[in-house]
Design a protein around this nucleic acid. Structure first.
Lengths: 191, 191
DNA sequence: TTTTTAACTGAACATTAATTCACTTATATT
DNA sequence: AATATAAGTGAATTAATGTTCAGTTAAAAA
């Protein structure tokens, strides 16, 4: 080997891409700009990512993986169901509000044609541990008897809504409001 | 005047654009394709819409207006609060599921840079009657004491989630499941 | 019927940006 | 030190597509 391939460059590229995509949207995203923001020549960017689509797909998975991993850190198998639910819910909310760009990127692309079927599937796969958790809640009569996908989306969707509102500057959630939102989520899904 | 400007053409263009945007996303949307789908020459399209951005912005408002108008039809001022809430909720759900393309278009663009500030603002304006209704519920202690924007987003967001799931083919809601979803929404926001 | 006017046409133009590639540079190996 | 190899460069190529415009056609007015 010669000059070592700096693994960190990939992160730098991710950061640059995320920033630019959030500012300009996918169509406004120019590979030349990404390269510049990551302090690379355009051609060098293509050493790291075969093309624009690959870049977006890999960034999506990267972000989703980082996020789900962090949320699952809040999970303690010894907790009673609602306690575990509560901890993860707040974890998800806090992470989402702390890094709204990441969440918006994920949600903005999750259902579009920029992502390949495979990427979407791999993305959903990352939620598997959460799905298992929800499933157990349904089995044990803690949660409404509905398909896991529905329960999950009804819990996570409202959080996404809050991120959008905060991002727009419409609201800035207080601690009490966060608590209220948690109660709303729990009241919705609990049996 | 000479050849009459067929006002219907605009609707034809809207339909064509909607179909194509949903298939290819905004960047994949080619004006030439829109024209072809609407059975016009490319140049003619520019008589009806100054450019691509204008087309998207006007289509957004058109769809949002049609949708909110239809939802508000379900409103009867004589109903008790929860009854009115229930009717509009089901109306919103049914409309959304019946024409998922329209909802997905609206939601997909609502928070992106394709839309001008003005368009976004006009779009929000359309929700004013709903906001007033929610406000009255809060005043009369029927609903949780939270900013209207939050309550609205927490009610509508979960419906959007369902549209996404149905579109993906993940689920097909049964009548009972719709009922369950309504209860979840109401349990979340009721005081 | 003639004239006027506005809709309509689509090839040509202009712009923009993704991708390539012939070449350079830096590091590791021998 | 010499060589090999992989990272890095950015101008040139290529492809795509938004927009324009000089000319055509159809309907209404005169």
């Amino acid at each position: 080997m010669a000059r070592p391939k700096d693994e960190n460059k990939i992160n730098t590229i991710y950061e640059a891409t995320l920033k630019l995509v959030l500012k300009t949207g996918f169509n406004g995203l120019k590979m030349a700009d990404v390269a510049k923001a990551a302090k690379l020549a355009t051609g060098t960017l293509y050493i790291y990512f075969k093309n624009k689509d690959v870049l977006i797909n890999e960034l999506f998975l990267h972000l989703k993986k980082a996020k789900t991993t962090e949320v699952l850190k809040a999970y303690n198998p010894n907790d009673a169901f609602e306690e575990a639910f509560r901890k993860m819910w707040f974890s998800y909310l806090d992470i989402s509000l702390r890094e709204p760009e990441r969440m918006l990127f994920i949600e903005q692309f999750a259902h579009t044609s920029f992502l390949t079927k495979k990427t979407k599937q791999q993305g959903n796969q990352l939620l598997a541990p959460l799905a298992v958790f929800i499933e157990s809640g349904i089995k044990n009569k803690k949660l409404r008897h509905l398909p896991v996908d529905i329960v999950l989306s009804q819990v996570l969707g409202p959080i996404y809504e809050m991120v959008k509102l905060e991002k727009e500057g419409t609201v800035k959630l207080s601690t009490q409001q966060k608590q209220a939102l948690y109660e709303m989520a729990w009241n919705a899904v609990k049996l």
